[in-house]
């Protein structure tokens, strides 16, 4: 790596200082506070008492909502990340073709990404209303259905809609990550494959997928983290109702901390969530650092 002349040994650290101060104060401190609270007794009024060991964790895990919430979180992350990766990949393949209106199509794909999640979620919340939602309205007016359909009959279906909205807003990110990977592939690979008589599927599995794998990995790991932490969609559409049945860890944690004033169990859940994220990001860091060295 070529570097410029640095006259004083401490100089680089001065350059880093503002960034370090900012991140320490607003990222590291909150982490420490959360860890401290998770092991402390906290009264309903928010007064922090002494060390209570794992009592908060026991309370959090023993709550009847904990099991379903963890299952929901799992379904949420797997379905949203999995399907948006699949669909995003297909869309990137399509957008990588030459066709009329390609620039317009690429701009349109960006739209959901650029919109605030709370706004997207509000719109979809309106769309799927039974009595006056826009989906029924459009389908009735186009003559596709004869009667209004209740699109949110049960909470399972509502949760599926939430996953759908999650997928909808996540696709653009995957598409653009894969697209940048696709564009960096040398056309010579495909020419060589064509000369060898490879079919479309062979080209896909032997050239395209291996070469976009790095981009795909990055987008997948980042997505796992973003989606795990996603709050506005579920909070706007169902608020976790009925009885935490559509909550994920993040929305459940928020309700516990700021509605039920149970900061102890809430911070315990934070630590659990934080640990899960750390495992995922640790994995990601190892992969990234490996590539930096290479």
């Amino acid at each position: 790596m070529d570097s410029i002349l640095v006259r004083r040994k401490w100089e680089p650290y001065v350059w880093l200082l503002p960034s370090i101060i900012l991140m320490t104060t607003f990222v590291i401190f909150p982490i420490m506070i959360v860890f401290k609270l998770a092991f402390s007794e906290i009264s309903k009024a928010g007064i922090v008492g002494g060390f209570v060991g794992f009592q908060n964790f026991v309370d959090a895990v023993k709550a009847p909502a904990f099991g379903p919430v963890m299952i929901n979180t799992f379904i949420w992350v797997i379905s949203v990340v999995g399907l948006s990766t699949l669909i995003g990949f297909i869309m990137a393949m399509v957008l990588n073709q030459e066709f009329i209106g390609r620039k317009v199509a690429r701009s349109i794909v960006v739209f959901p990404w650029a919109t605030s999640l709370v706004i997207q979620a509000s719109i979809w919340n309106y769309i799927i209303k039974y009595e006056y939602g826009n989906l029924n309205n459009v389908l009735l007016n186009m003559g596709i259905i004869k009667q209004a359909i209740n699109w949110r009959a049960t909470y399972q279906i509502e949760f599926m809609w939430e996953c759908g909205v999650g997928i909808f807003v996540t696709i653009p990110f995957v598409t653009f990550c894969v697209l940048s990977g696709l564009q960096s592939i040398d056309a010579a690979y495909y020419e060589a494959a064509t000369v060898d008589g490879a079919s479309f599927w062979q080209k896909l599995t032997h050239v395209t997928i291996p070469l976009v794998m790095p981009s795909l990995t990055v987008s997948t790991v980042l997505n796992i983290i973003y989606v795990f932490n996603s709050f506005p969609i579920i909070y706007t559409i169902t608020k976790g109702a009925p009885a935490n049945k559509t909550d994920t860890l993040i929305t459940y944690l928020y309700m516990l901390a700021f509605y039920d004033q149970k900061k102890g169990p809430a911070t315990a859940l934070s630590v659990i969530g934080f640990t899960i994220l750390c495992l995922v990001s640790g994995l990601y860091m190892m992969m990234t650092m490996k590539k930096e060295d290479a």
């Binding site: 990222v27 909150p30 959360v34 983290i225 932490n229 928020y254 911070t267 640790g282 860091m285 990234t288």
Partner: peptide, 17 residues
């Protein structure tokens, strides 16, 4: 790289404190 992974949401309680 690590801090890129920390969403403020999971740290909500800590941040508000």
């Amino acid at each position: 790289i690590m801090s890129q992974m920390f969403s403020p949401v999971v740290l909500l309680v800590g941040i508000s404190q």
